[in-house]
Design a protein around this nucleic acid. Structure first.
Lengths: 122, 122
DNA sequence: CCTTCCGCTAACCAATTGGTAAGTACCGAA
DNA sequence: TTCGGTACTTACCAATTGGTTAGCGGAAGG
């Protein structure tokens, strides 16, 4: 993961897609934004238990560069920044659904159930 | 990426699935095995231009642990080892298809076409 | 005053991932 | 006798990723 249109050349679409979603929290960010529509920084932070501020901003910036999330700054005191999915990001989320189901089945088979706190479909 | 049933706890299926497919060559290995059914080590190596032997064995061993690929050693001289997808691996491949298409569209939009040498659907 | 909130940034470090080069062990062909 | 093919392993190094700590800047609440 480096600059703008990333590390290529990509051998296939999966290559490109995986590049964009790999990172410890990217999948969860996608999920949070999909579930809530719009979220501010601190809401996302609370939604991803364990994430550090640095990592969250880092991932959000990358996803912005990659055209997955929209970032809107409101000039206020205290500051308010809102994040939401772009069309691209929403489409990516859709594309991730089968993968999420595959993962869920696997978790069930191994008795490593998902945390029921988030009761999301992925 | 560490031992057997991996780093958990996972927050959701996507988490688990991404854990299993992240790694520079995993997606391509999946593709190669899906496309050819059975491949030996050196065939895979030739199919993934740029991979080192170390990385290939490392990834293959991990995917074996994760139950994605089947490894069969034939006691011959010279040695012969054949790899193929398990049911799980094949299902994962199916689950990756939408993601691959998303990636392909994105590559098109950015004029970073896939190498036409492999003319696969992902 | 002091702290808290908010959304960052910078400096630094540790862990993970990936790469390079070499060695292993065996056989057949040149 | 040396080479190439096969499927690795080992040792070492570089790059990337993630984590920790600290601080900013201004306003509101104790």
């Amino acid at each position: 993961m480096a600059k703008g249109p990333r590390s290529g050349p990509y051998v296939c679409g999966i290559d490109a897609a995986l590049d964009v979603v790999s990172g410890k929290w990217k999948g969860l960010v996608l999920w949070e934004l999909h579930a809530h529509g719009v979220r501010r920084f601190s809401e996302l932070r609370r939604g991803l238990p364990g994430v550090s501020e640095k990592m969250l901003t880092q991932h959000l910036r990358q996803m912005e560069e990659d055209g997955l999330v929209h970032r809107e700054v409101h000039a206020q005191v205290p500051p308010k920044v809102e994040y939401s999915l772009t069309e691209d990001g929403a489409a990516l989320n859709e594309a991730l659904r089968p993968l999420g189901e595959w993962g869920r089945h696997r978790l069930h088979r191994e008795n490593l159930t998902t945390t029921p706190a988030h009761d999301h479909p992925y």
